[in-house]
């Protein structure tokens, strides 16, 4: 039942992706209400899935890689819903939907929805640590998406080849402001997430701690470069993509090792 909700949710996001792809192919990309509605609907089904799964588990549904991917996709959609209106909602949705489809599609296809043989006991501080960190990942994902949008816009301006999408992307300076704010939001949440990890009452694997701090340092360096105006906007946009890729790899590593070695 809960997987059906997830399939419906993925279909909603996929509809937004297909519509955007068709429009871009026809050269008449025009963000409209459809994308927003499709993503909104997809988000509702995601929420319903997580809620049902959470009730069944009796805790925050973050017990395996499958649930982590879905929670991450939900965080991306959530942050998009929160910040999208300020930065051309429907257009950012056109970039957000493919990422959500990728995450949910992978989760649905790969055999990673492994249930623990024994019921995992609830641990509020661990759940807080995991969920806040994942919402931070959502903000980093959106910063990554805004970074892609920035690079697309910048490239077209440099080459003087202005495609249909150019006229629907936000101005460069607005995109850069969005990137900066999303980076700050993600960084603050991630800091809270990491700090709360030390108060879970469980010993933390050394490798996970080092990797998490490495990602934290990477984002700290990006923000420091931005704050002191040492890194140009184009490089910050590119670093957002690199940073999120690194964070995603780390997330997979953490969840995978937690799943194979111990119960989270």
């Amino acid at each position: 039942m809960d997987r059906d909700l997830l399939i419906i949710s993925t279909t909603c996001f996929l509809a937004a992706v297909v519509r955007t792809a068709v429009a871009l192919r026809a050269g008449v990309f025009r963000p409209g209400r459809f994308n927003f509605l499709a993503i909104g609907l997809g988000f509702l089904f995601q929420t319903a899935f997580l809620s049902i799964r959470g009730h069944a588990l009796g805790r925050c549904p973050l017990t395996n890689l499958f649930e982590v991917f879905i929670f991450l996709a939900w965080s991306v959609a959530l942050i998009y819903m929160l910040v999208g209106p300020a930065y051309r909602l429907s257009l950012m949705g056109a970039f957000t939907a493919p990422l959500v489809v990728l995450l949910q599609g992978l989760a649905l296809i790969a055999p990673i929805d492994v249930r623990h043989p024994v019921k995992v006991p609830a641990n509020s501080s661990l759940e807080f640590h995991a969920s806040v960190s994942l919402v931070a990942y959502g903000a980093f994902a959106l910063a990554c998406i805004a970074g892609v949008m920035y690079l697309v816009q910048e490239r077209q301006l440099k080459t003087h080849q202005l495609r249909s999408i150019f006229y629907h992307l936000p101005p460069l300076t607005d995109l850069f402001t969005a990137i900066t704010r999303l980076l700050w939001l993600g960084f603050i949440l991630y800091t809270v997430g990491i700090a709360s990890g030390f108060f879970t009452g469980r010993p933390l694997p050394h490798v996970q701690v080092v990797a998490a701090i490495a990602v934290w340092l990477l984002y700290a360096a990006i923000l420091q470069g931005r704050y002191f105006r040492r890194i140009p906007p184009k490089q910050i946009a590119a670093l957002c993509i690199i940073g999120f890729s690194a964070a995603l790899t780390l997330l997979w590593g953490i969840t995978f090792s937690a799943q194979t070695h111990s119960v989270p």
């Binding site: 301006l157 150019f166 936000p170 460069l172 300076t173």
Partner: peptide, 8 residues
């Protein structure tokens, strides 16, 4: 138009 696409 281009100025607006860059600076808003």
């Amino acid at each position: 138009d281009l100025a607006q696409r860059i600076f808003g």
